[in-house]
């Protein structure tokens, strides 16, 4: 087996490689954002790109998310394929009109004459001690709007393959990266060209007693909990939808029907959130195969605290998922 097959990259390296490859492949691909050029973003995800592609294609913008997102919408409509960088996902709030009312609607309202092939890359996830305005996971907001695709990669492999698909998509795509994964999570990424289609869930671990549906940051938590559960004699399946829209409903339902018990985990708020939607999909599709209520686990319904012990308490952990799964299986 060639050495490349065993190559491991960090999450940030995988994202950077996807961008570099797509920028080499298509000269229309460009990057707009705060501190994306020389600084390579505060998360150092884009380091080295400005050196290769220049400041014409890696453009530092003023601190005005609404402004440069609108710029990207217009650039996409007129022929470029911009990738917008919104440093902290909390500030998608400033881009909402550009995304929800413009990017999501232009293709439809122009009768197909205009299209908006842009990507918004941004972040989610707590526990970085960044306080209430820099720790939220607001991907549900975009998942709610018809016309937007929403991607939540959970591994370096998925990040690269999904980002390349996002850049090549003719529609606006929002790409959420867990900021805690950028440099902490390493995984195999082949050097060969590949893309991953949207709307295809991935079974990260097969099991038979309970399904843990997990997105983004929660996938690693689910895998850790699954290991604990295995030691307790419970076989947990971990399935990652990878995109909240399009959503691979069939695979989620199939897994639920196989195991009869489901916990849905997502770092966003549960109230009216991604977990609520997925739980409803499963309840509708697998009702007569469910042996227990579908349980949801996500961020506590509070502003994320700055105090580290309090912040940690707002997010599901391997232990809390392990306990919830045991209870659902009647083993607690």
């Amino acid at each position: 087996m060639p050495e490349a097959a065993h190559r491991e990259l960090t999450f940030a390296q995988a994202v950077r490689e996807a961008l570099a490859e797509e920028m080499r492949r298509d000269s229309r691909v460009c990057i707009f954002g705060e501190d994306v050029a020389e600084a390579g973003t505060p998360f150092k995800v884009l380091s080295g790109l400005v050196e290769e592609f220049g400041t014409e294609r890696v453009v530092d913008t003023p601190i005005s998310e609404a402004g440069f997102t609108g710029l990207a919408v217009g650039a996409a409509m007129t022929g470029l394929r911009p990738v917008v960088d919104i440093m902290f996902g909390d500030f998608i709030t400033l881009t909402m009109d550009q995304m929800a009312n413009q990017a999501a609607k232009v293709h439809y309202m122009s009768g197909g004459k205009w299209k908006v092939p842009m990507v918004m890359r941004t972040t989610l996830g707590a526990t970085r001690r960044s306080a209430a305005q820099h720790s939220q996971s607001l991907h549900a907001w975009f998942s709610h709007v018809p016309g937007l695709k929403v991607v939540l990669p959970s591994t370096p492999y998925d990040a690269k393959g999904l980002l390349k698909t996002a850049i090549r998509d003719e529609n606006p795509v929002v790409f959420f990266e867990d900021k805690m994964m950028h440099h902490k999570l390493k995984g195999p990424v082949p050097s060969e060209e590949y893309t991953i289609p949207f709307g295809v869930a991935d079974v990260k671990r097969a099991g038979s007693d309970i399904t843990l549906v997990a997105t983004s940051s929660m996938v690693q938590v689910a895998l850790g909990a699954a290991a604990l559960l295995e030691a307790a004699g419970i076989s947990a399946e971990v399935i990652d939808p990878r995109t909240t829209w399009p959503l691979d409903e069939a695979s989620l339902i199939e897994s639920a029907r196989k195991t009869s018990r489901v916990i849905v985990m997502d770092e966003g708020y549960g109230r009216y959130g991604v977990t609520a939607e997925i739980a409803a999909v499963i309840a509708e599709g697998a009702f007569y195969d469910l042996d227990a209520p579908v349980k949801r686990m996500g961020a506590m319904h509070v502003p994320i605290p700055f105090s580290p012990p309090l912040e940690d308490a707002t997010v599901p952990t391997e232990q809390s998922v392990f306990e919830a799964a045991q209870a659902l299986c009647g083993r607690s």
Partner: peptide, 15 residues
Amino acid sequence: QQDASVAKISPKARR
């Protein structure tokens, strides 16, 4: 009156 006689049962178990 009905609560006492209707055992709680999962949808799968009922099926």
